[in-house]
Design a binder for these strands. Structure first.
Lengths: 230, 230
DNA sequence: TAGATTGTTAATCGATTAACAATC
DNA sequence: TAGATTGTTAATCGATTAACAATC
């Protein structure tokens, strides 16, 4: 490959489609680094940090930290490490936390209410600007600064505001129907906290948050640990 | 390998340690199959179901369904498929949902309250039998059938009841301290809903539930989909 | 019987981990 | 300078997917 080809490849990578896929495990670890780095910054112990340091503190192999940071396009200095401030800002940019995305939440039960109270979401570029329910007790109220509307208004409001992200915090039974309704209105990505898998057209993104799955992993690890120690 | 060796190997696998590790992705999919199978059973469309059918409905490759069910030690009939009832019962047994595990919950905020209300956990063998907080408003109250105690009673109650699972639903700041306290008292597995990674001794299990990580995956997929379609 | 489906072994794919030259 | 650390290429590992004989 000659110099011309190299520079062409760079241009393609940065400006053109398709963007190369980022490994999901890396994507999931970046927020961990971010939270850790902000803590470290507040301790004022220096301006630079090494992968060895990060890895030790987070129980992740240093080489993996280096790979992840490389994918996020961070650049370090041999012997010194990475600038903490720069790293924080690079992760923010890479994950798109600078430009906020608006979202609607459907289902103001216990979990929905809890999510409405997560101030932290704003830090991660997510802004829940309205909630929907069918319970007359809740409609019209403002919960954690977010107004609750009747579900019947969902379609028009999604259309009018051009909302792309929907958060689904409802029981199993109405989950599919409400998903269909959101998709019809123009929602492109659904964060699904309901206990069932919902079906969507191929161009719609669904992120299924399944507490049962997580609990199973925890419980099985506990059982295996007991067996192997006995 | 002769017949003797084969039978010896079987005996070891079934009765002796160490139990062979189960792939975590499989473990996470099993509850999905379970929820789906219960729905199918209630529709009374027949007694048997094939991997093709399950896979189509859940958007999972049939061969992967077959692998997963095999790992859970399910046995099917060529041409017919698997008995739905048998499959449900095999998953319940394999995941240990028959014998309930008691747990304590620490931090009765919005999320903690929501988790206390999840009746579904009982189905998955998890029984939250007490909650702890430092807020005098909450102490002494019963939320969703679970009594809230002062945090100071955690240590003695864990010891006395032999509780092994702790659910941590607190903000970042007290998370590590409360983890240490739980471990000292005898907790062996922590389901961590706090926004920070907590450090534990090597024999303690931590399952970190990180909403920021999930949100990042959702948002990045949405961004990539837009770029590739433009 | 014929054909769909299981169970198992092999091939592929992608993420993790190792190796090592470049460098502040 | 010497040594720790980065960035990159190669090796390993484990999960997914494919292939195919056995079978109700």
């Amino acid at each position: 490959m000659n110099e011309m080809e190299v520079s062409m490849a760079n241009v393609e990578d940065r400006n053109d489609l398709p963007t190369k896929p980022i490994p999901e495990p890396t994507l999931r670890r970046l927020p961990l680094y971010y939270q850790y780095l902000k803590k470290v910054r507040d301790e004022h112990k220096g301006d630079f940090i090494s992968c060895t340091q990060i890895g030790n503190d987070l129980s992740i192999l240093p080489i993996q930290v280096r790979k992840d940071l490389g994918i996020a396009e961070a650049v370090g200095k041999p012997k010194l490490g990475y600038s903490i401030d720069e790293l924080i800002s690079i992760i923010e940019t890479f994950l798109g936390w600078n430009n906020t995305k608006d979202a609607y939440l459907v289902g103001v039960g216990h979990l929905g209410t809890a999510l409405l109270g997560f101030e932290r979401f704003k830090e991660y570029g997510l802004n829940i600007i309205a909630a929907f329910d069918i319970d007359k007790e809740k409609i019209g109220k403002t919960i954690h600064g977010v107004k609750v509307f009747h579900l019947g208004k969902l379609h028009d409001m999604v259309k009018r505001m051009g909302i792309k992200i929907g958060i689904l915090t409802v029981p199993a039974s109405p989950a599919q129907e409400l998903t269909d309704e959101m998709v019809r209105a123009g929602i492109r990505a659904i964060w699904n906290f309901s206990p069932v898998k919902v079906n969507v057209p191929p161009d719609i993104i669904v992120q299924h948050e399944n507490l049962a799955s997580s609990l199973v992993v925890l419980a099985k690890k506990l059982t295996l640990a007991r067996q192997n120690q006995s």
